[in-house]
Amino acid sequence: MSALFEADRLQMRFGNRIVLEDITLRFGPGELCGIMGPNGAGKTTCFNVLTGRYRPSRGQVRLDGEDITGLRPHEIARKGVSRSFQIMNLFNDFTARDNIVTALPGLRRRGFDVSHAVAANSAFADQAEVLLERVGLAGKGGVLARSLSYGDRRALEIGVALAAAPRILFLDEPTSGLGSDGTARLAALIGSLKGQLTIVIIEHDMRFLFSLADRISVIHWGQVLAQGTPQMLRDNEWVRNSNLGKLQ
């Protein structure tokens, strides 16, 4: 099976500090992959390199066989790579609906069409409504993002990322700060997306990850230490010995 998204021997240095040593990752179409590892292992840096925030010091990133290394974030996003952030990143003064509309490729393509009235475009509103329903925010479209509950904001994060019509979605600790109810709700949401597009999740909540993911990669010291299905990782000695593997 050819991979949709490939990262080949990525290295990332900041000054003389090496954050990513040698990372090789492959994500197939429709796969749901997890990335785990201790704090400071380089997971978020890895996402930042994959989505174009940083240019890697060495190595290559390919989407569908096309080299996208060093492209700027918006260029990579336009090719169908979307992401969420560990720290909440929403347009707080916009309503939930407007958050979604702003991310629609249709709006983006008309970005310099100054004669067009956003509010009069019912296609935008309809698409936004569909997406809001999909992430469980039906009926909350008119609420300001800053006024939504924490759980709803996490869901809206995913909604905004989805609105950009991605082929691959990177989620950076989507359950961070959520209680068990919120985590369950998010697990259901991500589960419902499974198979429709490639999803890559950084997560600390191991139960969450092991129940959802097809494949998990363990990153530590800037390297991929182990890779495989959740079952394979449960059996992996290193994972078992580290406190990462404590599932119960």
Partner: peptide, 24 residues
């Protein structure tokens, strides 16, 4: 009130987010 203005306001609120949904 056009998409252009909407994107400007998005940039004001969150430049990073705006870039990662594909706006230049």
């Amino acid at each position: 009130n056009s998409p252009y203005g909407r994107i400007l306001q998005a940039i004001r609120q969150n430049e990073t987010r705006a870039a990662f949904i594909g706006h230049n």
